[in-house]
Computed example of a mutant assay.
Amino acid sequence: MGQIIPWNFPLLMAAWKLAPALAAGCTVVLKAAEQTPMTALRLAELFQEAGFPPGVVNILTGFGETAGAAIAAHPDVDKVAFTGSTEVGKLIVQAASGNLKKVSLELGGKSPAVILADADLDIAIPGAANGIFFNHSQACCAGSRLFAHKSVYDRVVSGIADIAGKIKVGPGLDPATEMDPLVSEEQFARVTGYIENGRQSGAHIAVGGNRVGNLGYFVAPTVMDRTTPDMRVVQEEIFGPVLCAQPFGDDDLEAIAKQANDTIYGLAASVWTRNGSVAHKLARRIRSGTVWINCHNVFDASLPFGGYKQSGWGREMGEEVFHNYTEVKAVTAAL
């Protein structure tokens, strides 16, 4: 089995990949992200200390376009599991065609947070803020598109902007820091480029929108108001602390779901309302692998995680993950 993990949760992603594969009886070659290899290498040492037989778990470092591509294309790899961007996921699918290896993909997202008129705003506002700004928004399931009913929209946007403005941005080793820097110069350029594009497209910056300090890759938590569905910042994954907010005035669940589903992605979503029946009806209409109700970014090892549409193939965690690492065999004998 070949496994390729991203840089945003390096140890967690290694655990998500390795545990089910090993439980299913597979041997693994896992490539760590070039930006964050150290945790995976330490994990390899722990496997050795635990007495795993040689060759069962193999940890590689290297760049995606070389080491990752080799794993995806290698004829002796029967299955490749990848977590990362949709663009790279498509390249892996192409590379896997050589021997038609099985592929599972956990890819990008542009997850909606839908706040209905009756939502408890004391829960929804900080919950939606955490949904986007958790881990500096370097998370595939970040709630980066905010839809709030027009009757509560102004209060929601101002509330999230107030929270964003108070987040302490600084070095990760500082105990007082609440949001540390982006992972690299490349990611910093990507995020600030999107912010500038949104500004030029007519979005209003309610808070943030700027670099923090003169050194490092620090970006202020940003809330963009007056965004429209055609904007790049609304349609494309930014992977940084940028929330794009839009009001809606329709109470029809089909219309609300249509807005939430207006994306190539379908990884996650959250619905905020006091009405449990409405929450489940809307959750059923939203095309995403995970829908949270009155929360966001809540995980459990027993729950499957993965996406619809261009957010991927297959599921991580839960019973579903074992479909990634097993094949069904029928044996028929004449007695």
Rank of each mutant, 00 (worst) to 15 (best):
M1D: 07
Q3L: 08
I4M: 01
I4T: 01
P6H: 11
N8G: 06
P10K: 09
L11A: 02
L12Y: 12
A14S: 07
P20G: 07
L22H: 09
L22N: 09
A23C: 06
G25M: 02
C26F: 03
P37Y: 06
A40S: 06
L43S: 11
Q48P: 02
E49P: 13
P53Q: 13
V56M: 02
F63S: 10
A67V: 15
G68F: 02
A69S: 15
A69T: 14
A72E: 12
V77C: 08
K79C: 13
T86S: 09
V88M: 03
Q94K: 13
A95S: 15
N99A: 04
N99E: 03
N99K: 05
L100H: 12
P112I: 00
L116M: 15
L116T: 10
A117Y: 03
D120L: 05
D122N: 15
I123Y: 12
I125K: 02
Q138S: 05
C140S: 14
C141L: 05
G143K: 00
G143Q: 01
F147V: 06
I160P: 10
I160H: 11
D162C: 08
A164N: 11
I167L: 13
K168C: 15
V169M: 14
G170S: 08
G170F: 06
L173R: 04
L173H: 09
T177V: 14
D180N: 14
L182E: 08
E185H: 15
G193Q: 10
G193M: 08
R199Y: 04
G202T: 03
V207R: 01
R211E: 13
G213L: 11
G213F: 10
N214E: 14
L215C: 14
G216V: 08
Y217G: 01
A220M: 11
D225K: 02
P229C: 12
D230C: 03
D230I: 01
D230W: 04
M231L: 15
R232G: 10
E236A: 06
I238G: 09
G240K: 10
G240M: 08
P241Q: 12
A245L: 06
F248Y: 04
G249C: 00
D251R: 00
L253A: 00
I256P: 01
A260S: 06
T263I: 07
I264C: 06
L267C: 05
R274C: 12
H280V: 06
S288K: 00
V298P: 10
S302R: 15
L303S: 14
R315N: 03
G318W: 14
E319C: 11
Y325R: 02
E327V: 13
A330K: 07
A330Y: 13
L335Y: 09
